[in-house]
Design a protein around this nucleic acid. Structure first.
Lengths: 207, 207
DNA sequence: GAAAATATTGACCAGTTGGTCAGGATCAGG
DNA sequence: CCTGATCCTGACCAACTGGTCAATATTTTC
């Protein structure tokens, strides 16, 4: 489609990365509309025209960030496999997602910001690739339930619950920390809680 | 503190309400920075200067919305009482919160937007009134657990999980609907799922 | 029904923002 | 060390935005 430069110089690579990192920080903290190119430039240590030398527009930066994000975001779900113990598989997925919230909170917030505002730039993916992936994994989970290896429940909403619970600790981190006060490690505690919750929910015979 | 007009005329009441409703719609959909006074004025059916006749500034509208929101938002948790069956009390709380997500999705998104961006205007409340309320209810839940009336788990994270799960259906409604496709009633299904989840989590002897 | 209070508006303004551009600085290859 | 490509910047612009204000319209009150 679009012609990309044959070679990317060291400078180009470094600056593009700096801009994307700065933009991620700002967009995730202030939203797209709340962020100015100048702020991104400042954080990246560049001038505004220089930022626009590397990216055609503010929108282009945002789009590139979102595209990169999607790969990262859907990764853990892809790893949900048929092999192994079903409950362990699901618990491992929840754990991976929680680690993502802990290690990539900015990405989580960028995604949240986007979906919160109607996901205009993600709508096709949500109803397309994501939906197919979710349906596939939900079918796998349904098989496990039919085999009696885990307790019955709605597979789609089971997955939603994992998203909601894990992303909550990134997206609402301020609130969680404010309510818990100092001396807490929200993510460590959350891991224990989630383990417990899904073990009890899925324990064979619980239904 | 501030001097309010002795009498509020019909017009004043009607227009202030129209402005707040319009602002809620726009702020929750586009964020504070992404919303212009002109947009609010259009939705409210007024002119921009007329909006600013009723509110001192864009910020003042936002602040007033947030204040009104807090009462609404903390209401359900206050109703969590010591009387009655513990599991029923918690299930009822989850159900009320889910109904809030269904009936006040804009309020939920406004709140999410705010917390997502670091909650600069709510920080004192989150660490103050909210924290106290949560601690109080967490203590009540801890008593129930100590009495063996519900299974043991972390009361704070139990409450967080209810927030995360219920608000998810409002804040990420676009995603939920995109993934489920047509022919689903996310909120109805969620209610069944949540009932099941918390029943199994809290079932005495589950620990 | 006239005066007073309230409501509404068009015109305007200053600051901000996304984006452009011509020219200059710097770098890589020969 | 020369040259072309790449990189960077100051100055600039048009559009937009929050907010003001004097003048006008409307409603309320007596």
């Amino acid at each position: 489609m679009s012609e990309k430069p044959r070679r990317v110089s060291r400078i180009q690579k470094k600056n593009r990365e700096a801009i994307l990192a700065a933009a991620l920080q700002e967009f995730s903290a202030r939203g797209f509309a709340g962020t100015t190119i100048d702020q991104i430039a400042d954080v990246a240590g560049l001038s505004k025209p220089n930022v626009l030398y590397y990216f055609a527009s503010k929108d282009a930066i945002h789009t590139e960030l979102l595209e990169a994000l999607l790969d990262l975001w859907l990764g853990p779900l892809r790893e949900l496999q048929a092999a192994g113990d079903p409950a362990d598989q699901i618990l491992a997925y929840a754990r991976r997602k929680l680690e993502m919230s802990r290690d990539y909170p900015q990405e989580s917030r960028l995604f949240a910001n986007e979906v919160l505002q109607g996901a205009p730039r993600l709508a096709s993916i949500l109803g397309g690739a994501l939906r197919e992936l979710v349906d596939e994994k939900a079918a796998l989970i349904a098989v496990w339930m039919a085999e009696g290896r885990i307790a019955r429940t709605d597979p789609h909403h089971l997955l939603f619950s994992i998203w909601a619970l894990t992303q909550h600790y990134a997206d609402f981190e301020v609130q969680v920390r404010a309510v818990l006060g100092d001396g807490h490690d929200p993510f460590a505690e959350a891991q224990g809680f989630l383990d417990q919750l899904y073990r009890r929910l899925l324990r064979p015979g619980a239904d």
